[in-house]
């Protein structure tokens, strides 16, 4: 779906009338998927990026910039097209995901290729979640493209910038590099004891345990330290606040 929403006059007025910058900066975020340049640096897939490796969410500058590094000198590597940034192969419709580490009122999100704004999504002046996804139609574009994603903050003069290198469709251009590393298989916790159950039986999700109750888990015996209902993720060896090994 291609959206062409006129930038609200109200928001423009707000920018002009309240040029304010907060100390410390009030919001942070970056495009995590397809991986932006700063995400590739943070993942170590592109080496020697400098400090951006540890703060991909901090590419913050005044609204209206059209570069990849928000004009910040020590993030200049992000704007260096000669770094061989791997491009993610995508179809004509792409879902972009922002990972936001500090949340704040959002004016909107904008997406640019070259000088063209290819999509805009209204933020309604509300804070977003830790993750925000937008589906953008890139039907008019093909081959290798550098897309600039911008998160415009609602109540400061600032925005956050992420450049994403894409290989769109089957068109020409350099060969795409494989997209992000697949997740490792999720380890499955074993709930099966190898010993006969102690009094109280095997640890079971959904069961309410009281202080002093004993269970077995993974062949070991644990005593409940704090009353609770057992849930996945609270396996006895993982939550010493709830269980101590006997």
């Amino acid at each position: 779906m291609r959206r062409r929403i006129t930038f609200p006059l109200m928001a423009t007025g707000a920018v002009l009338s309240t040029l304010a910058v907060a100390a410390p900066a009030q919001a942070h975020g970056y495009v995590s998927g397809p991986p932006s340049r700063q995400a590739l640096c943070a993942q170590g897939r592109v080496p020697d990026c400098g400090q951006i490796k540890y703060e991909p969410q901090s590419v913050e500058g005044p609204k209206g910039l059209r570069n990849c590094h928000a004009g910040i000198a020590h993030f200049a590597v992000l704007n260096d097209d000669s770094r061989g940034w791997p491009a993610t192969s995508v179809g004509s419709t792409v879902t972009f995901t922002w990972t936001n580490t500090v949340l704040h009122a959002t004016s909107n999100w904008e997406y640019f290729i070259g000088g063209t704004r290819v999509a805009v999504f209204d933020g309604g002046g509300r804070p977003p979640g830790y993750t925000v996804s937008h589906t953008v139609n890139l039907g008019g574009w093909s081959g290798r493209q550098k897309l600039l994603a911008v998160w415009n903050i609602g109540d400061t003069a600032n925005a956050f910038y992420s450049c994403v290198d894409l290989q769109i469709g089957g068109g020409g251009g350099p060969s795409p590099t494989p997209s992000p590393t697949p997740p490792a298989p999720t380890p499955t916790p074993s709930a099966s004891p190898t010993n006969p159950p102690a009094p109280g039986g095997t640890w079971t999700t959904g069961r309410a345990y009281q202080v002093g109750d004993q269970v077995t888990y993974g062949g070991l015996t644990y005593r409940c330290r704090q009353a609770h209902t057992a849930i996945p993720g609270w396996e006895p060896p993982n939550v010493p606040a709830l269980w101590s090994q006997v």
């Binding site: 910058v21 100390a23 004009g71 020590h74």
Partner: peptide, 26 residues
């Protein structure tokens, strides 16, 4: 939290880095 209001011309990246985004606070 204090909010500093600055004129637009002062909104340079360097200023953002030093006042708005100072690292190593903790």
């Amino acid at each position: 939290m204090t909010v500093r209001r600055l004129p637009a011309v002062a909104l340079t990246a360097a200023l953002l880095v030093t006042t708005g985004c100072a690292p190593g606070a903790a």
